[in-house]
């Protein structure tokens, strides 16, 4: 099952820590969103494989945009 990872708070993408194809476990850090000069990590909602990443470093993201898609294992 494919799970979408949504933006938890609006900001800029500070760094993306995973690549397409990576295996991740629940609560692994996927990327960091910078908001109000604060770095906010976003964690994996489930175990699985990253199948698509829709953002890159520096992108401005809004609430509930899709960050990436994880194929649940």
């Amino acid at each position: 099952m494919a799970t979408e990872v949504l933006v938890p708070l609006a900001g800029n993408i500070w760094v993306v820590l995973v690549n397409v194809g990576d295996e991740v476990e629940e609560d692994d850090e996927l990327l960091v969103i910078e908001a109000l000069k604060m770095e906010n990590p976003v964690y994996a909602p489930c175990d699985g494989t990253v199948t698509e990443i829709r953002v890159k470093k520096g992108d401005v993201v809004e609430d509930d945009d899709v960050l990436m898609i994880i194929e649940e294992s």
Binding site: P8, L9, D27, A35, L36, K37, M38, N40, P41, Y43
Partner: peptide, 21 residues
């Protein structure tokens, strides 16, 4: 925004998927 950042940090220490900022 320091006070708001502190809220975010304390909130995240209880539940790291909670974004209160």
């Amino acid at each position: 925004p320091m006070a708001a950042r502190v809220v975010q940090k304390v909130g995240a220490s209880a539940d790291k998927n909670n974004y209160l900022l």
